[in-house]
Design a protein around this nucleic acid. Structure first.
Length: 105
DNA sequence: CTTATGACTATGA
DNA sequence: TTCATAGCCATAA
């Protein structure tokens, strides 16, 4: 099914995100060739096997650097901690510095 | 066919 | 700058 292919592609792409780098849903969706499916990218993260399986969904954030509080795997606090561990810079607002940590294909 | 929902994004107040 | 609303695409009822 194409849907699984989309999911698999999303996982693989997220898996390629280097350490200390983050990407937005729309950015990943655009890399998949469908920038309008940013929501499905997020859904793929929701259905993702988890970072332990090789899918660092915590490196996927909003276009403005915000996190999906409420649906995160353990709360945005944990996500922020993980990202900081990898070297991602956080702004005083509690958002990721996309201007610097944005992943480049 | 119309309506509702969703880890989104862009625009306007 | 922050908050609210509309638009977008795919799937389900």
């Amino acid at each position: 099914m194409e849907r699984e292919g989309f999911f698999e592609r999303t996982y693989e792409l997220v898996r390629q995100i280097p350490r200390g780098r983050v990407a937005s849903y729309g950015q990943i969706a655009a890399m998949l060739g469908q920038p309008r499916k940013a929501r499905f990218v997020g859904f793929a993260m929701h259905a993702s096997p988890g970072q332990a399986a090789g899918v660092p969904c915590h490196r996927v954030v909003f276009k403005d650097g915000s996190l999906a509080a409420g649906y995160a795997f353990g709360g945005p606090s944990v996500q922020r901690q993980l990202l900081e561990e990898e070297g991602v810079v956080f702004l005083p607002d509690g958002r990721v510095d996309m201007s610097t940590c944005r992943w480049e294909a």
